[in-house]
Simulated assay, not measured.
Amino acid sequence: MLKKINWRAILFGFLWLISLSGLITLMSFIEIKKSALKCKDVKVLLPGQFNFIERDEVDRILMENGGAMLGKDLNDINIHKLENALKANPFIEFAKVYADMTGVIHVQIRQREPVLRVVNMANLHFYIDGNGNKIPLSDNYTAKVLVASGLIEEDFSGRVDTLKTKMARDLFRTALFIRSDTLWDNQIEQLFVDLKGDIEMVPRVGGHKIILGSADSLQIKFRNLLVFYKKAIPKVGWDTYKTINLKYANQIVCEKNIIDSTKITIDINKQIADSTITETQN
C-alpha cells in the first residue's frame, strides 16, 4: 500500500531551501560590495554627562589600533581589534564598532558613571561606578559625587575591579540609595566610616552628623530620618543636635549639641502611627 505524500512538508522544505539560498546569496553580495568599499568617514557617538574620556582620546585609540582609516579598504580594518582596544579603557563601559554599506565606520561608546568617590586608609582615591566596579580617577574630569573616607580598608590596584569588602559594598549601596532620591541627594554630601566601623553621613544643612551604622534596612532608616526632619527639627532647629543615630530599630537616638551632651531618645513607632513626636530625657 502506497503511503500518502506529505506535500505540505515538501513545500515547507522547498521554501526553506530557497530562503537559505537567498540569504547566502545576499550575504555574498554584501561581502563583495563591502570588499569594494573604502572608509569614507568615522563617526563617534560619545553621549553622557561625564567627560572621563574625550573625542581626542577616542581618536588616539582608533589611530593606534587601526591606523589612518579614511580611504582604507573596509576589509583591511579590524573592527574587533578596535572594539577591544576601546573596551580596555577603564572609563569605557560599552563600545561597539561597525561599518555600514556607505563606507562609514560608526563608533558607539558608553562611559562609566561613578556614584561614589572613595579615599581609603592608605589615602588611595578611586571611584565606584553604578555597577559596583572600582575605577581610577581621571585627569580630564572630576565627578561631582559623594565622597567616602575614614576607616575603609578596600584596596585599589589602579585597574577596574569588583568590590572585595563588606564595608565597600555597604558604602556603594548607601550611595546608590542616596542618589536615587532627590531629597537625600541634595542633603547628604559626604560619608565617613568611624573607628567603630559605623557609616556616618555629613549633611549639607545642619550642624549634626547622622550615624547610619550599616547599609541594612536603608529604606526604614531614611524614612525615620525624614519623619525626624519633618516633626522634630521645626520645633528645635537644625543646630540643636550633635548626632542623630539611626542604627537602632524603630527609634532615633539623638545627642544634644551642648556641653553635657544630654541624650534624647525619640520613639519613631509612635511618630509614624500618630504623626506626633515625644521626647524622653535619659
Rank of each mutant, 00 (worst) to 15 (best):
D267T: 10
I277M: 13
V147L: 13
R8L: 15
T278Q: 12
K40H: 09
K72S: 08
A36Y: 05
I61R: 02
A168D: 02
L191G: 02
R179S: 11
E200A: 02
M101L: 15
Q111F: 04
L11S: 15
F192I: 08
L37I: 05
G22D: 08
L176F: 06
L74Q: 07
L116K: 03
R169A: 12
D239N: 12
D73M: 08
K144V: 09
V202A: 02
F126G: 05
F126E: 02
I109F: 05
V160E: 08
Q111Y: 07
R173K: 13
V107C: 04
Y141E: 00
D198W: 07
I135P: 01
V227M: 12
M201K: 07
A175D: 00
K235I: 12
G207F: 08
L137K: 05
I105L: 04
K221T: 07
M69L: 08
D139G: 10
D161N: 12
K134M: 09
E31S: 02
L218F: 06
N84V: 08
L146A: 04
N65Y: 04
Q251H: 03
A143W: 13
F91H: 04
Y229E: 06
V193D: 06
A95L: 00
F91P: 03
K96D: 01
T102L: 10
F14L: 15
L17R: 10
W16H: 15
D59Q: 14
G207V: 03
